[in-house]
Amino acid sequence: MLVSLVCATLVALAVLGGVAASTGGANILPGILRVTFWSTLAMGLSAAVGTAFGAPT
């Protein structure tokens, strides 16, 4: 369940990154990669901090 949620979130963020890049007149692929990379990093760090402090999953 958790893996599918993370995957669905990353797909949605990639789509939004592409839409934002297209709307701003930038190249779509770098926009998708940038949003997906930083979002993955933020989710990973949030999960690590939550695990370190004993947050329930």
Rank of each mutant, 00 (worst) to 15 (best):
W38F: 15
A20K: 14
V11E: 03
V19S: 02
L41S: 10
A47R: 04
S22E: 13
G50L: 06
F53M: 02
A52K: 03
S39L: 00
I28S: 08
V49E: 01
A14V: 07
G24A: 15
P30G: 08
G54E: 05
C7V: 11
G44Y: 04
L29C: 01
M43E: 09
G44D: 01
V3Y: 03
A8Y: 03
A26F: 15
T23S: 13
G54L: 02
A55P: 00
I28M: 14
G44C: 06
V6H: 01
L13C: 10
N27H: 14
G44S: 12
T57K: 15
A8N: 01
V6S: 00
A48D: 00
N27I: 11
I28L: 14
G31E: 08
L45E: 01
N27A: 15
V6M: 04
T36P: 02
G44F: 09
L2E: 13
A8P: 00
L29F: 09
A52L: 13
L45S: 07
S4C: 00
I32M: 12
A20I: 09
M43W: 06
A12W: 07
L13F: 12
S4H: 06
V49T: 04
A52G: 03
T51P: 02
A47N: 01
I28Y: 11
V19R: 05
A48F: 12
S46D: 05
V3I: 05
T57G: 15
V35D: 00
G44P: 02
M1E: 05
F37E: 12
T23W: 14
G54N: 07
F37M: 13
G18T: 10
T36L: 12
A20E: 13
G44H: 02
V11M: 10
P56T: 10
G44R: 04
G44I: 03
